[in-house]
């Protein structure tokens, strides 16, 4: 007993350090997790999280049965999968291409330029997109008119254009910054490998394929798992800003739906229902992370846990 208390006594200052973060995480992360129970309840303004009546799976059934369910799910999946397909390979190809050039100053300049858009906020990014694509005053409108002689349609109001604008504006903003990790991996390639390949008569292109690509493969795997785990978390911030009444058909995703049903409907805010929708999304996400992690552990022996 005395031994035990001595063991803890040695570390009391460290536990003191941990006290504040643990309390913080308990309040701001775990209490909301307990609050998720309202998705199985009927929370009204008159009652609290605790005394609201249980309703079982009613909220989930309402969401699954609602006429919007299929559209919202489809929009979320389309935007996510399209984002991964376009945004994932781009930085890798960019890093490989730029790295093939052996002029350091040129490389640095291109890198510096392509990192810039990463620091632009979502609000500014969306407004730049709006301005550039403006049918009358934007670059797009002016060029379209100069070439075809007529005024283009407003792209922001066409539902079928929304996924493309959303995904490619993200690629524009982030491909440079996301390539940093691959540049770092490429810079650690042993130069002797390249020299040996050169002596064997391998062209620069062959060396990219057989030296550079294998060298960054582990990094690619890790990044892919990380990316897969965020597949269903289509960020609220950008989609919400790009939405307008005309493109809602393809731009309404789970997170924006949750916000609108739960917090932006004034008196008809339905906390329980939108928490249920959110929980549905989180569970799908959790499944995706677990599955992609398991697959990658089996296939490549690299995994997050």
């Amino acid at each position: 007993m005395e031994k035990l208390s001595k063991k803890y006594k040695r570390y009391w200052q460290l536990y003191l350090f941990l006290l504040i973060p643990v309390a913080y995480v308990f309040i701001f992360n775990y209490i909301p997790m307990v609050g998720v129970q309202i998705s199985f309840k009927k929370l009204k303004i008159t009652n609290t999280i605790w005394n609201a009546p249980w309703v079982g799976l009613e909220n989930f059934q309402r969401f699954l049965g609602s006429y919007q369910f299929f559209d919202i799910l489809l929009n979320t999946v389309v935007l996510s999968v399209y984002s991964v397909l376009a945004a994932f390979p781009f930085p890798i190809l960019f890093a490989l291409t730029l790295n093939a050039i052996e002029k350091n100053r040129f490389k640095k300049t291109i890198q510096t330029i392509t990192y810039i858009p990463h620091f632009i906020s979502v609000v500014v990014l969306v407004s730049i997109v709006n301005q550039v694509l403006h049918p009358m005053t934007g670059i797009y409108g002016v060029l379209f008119k100069a070439i075809t002689g007529r005024m283009p349609d407003d792209l922001m109001g066409i539902p079928s254009a929304f996924p493309h604008i959303y995904v490619w504006s993200s690629v524009w903003q982030n491909f440079g910054y996301n390539s940093i990790i691959y540049f770092a991996a490429l810079s650690s390639v042993d130069p002797e490998l390249h020299e040996a390949a050169k002596v064997d008569g391998a062209s620069r292109f062959r060396r990219v394929l057989h030296v550079d690509v294998p060298a960054i493969l582990p990094t690619i795997t890790i990044m892919l798992i990380l990316r897969m785990s965020t597949v269903m978390t289509i960020g609220f911030q950008k989609v919400y800003l790009m939405q307008n009444t005309l493109n809602l058909e393809t731009s309404e995703v789970i997170s924006t739906y949750v916000y609108k049903k739960g917090l932006a409907s004034g008196v008809s805010n339905d906390y329980s229902y939108s928490t249920a929708v959110d929980l549905f999304n989180s569970i799908v996400n959790l499944l995706l992370v677990t599955v992609s992690n398991t697959i990658s552990r089996k296939v490549s022996e690299t995994s997050l846990w």
């Binding site: 701001f28 997790m33 997170s255």
Partner: peptide, 11 residues
């Protein structure tokens, strides 16, 4: 895992 938008708001 996290509680999500509404429970955090309520907190």
């Amino acid at each position: 895992f996290n509680g999500g938008m509404i429970p955090s708001y309520l907190l």
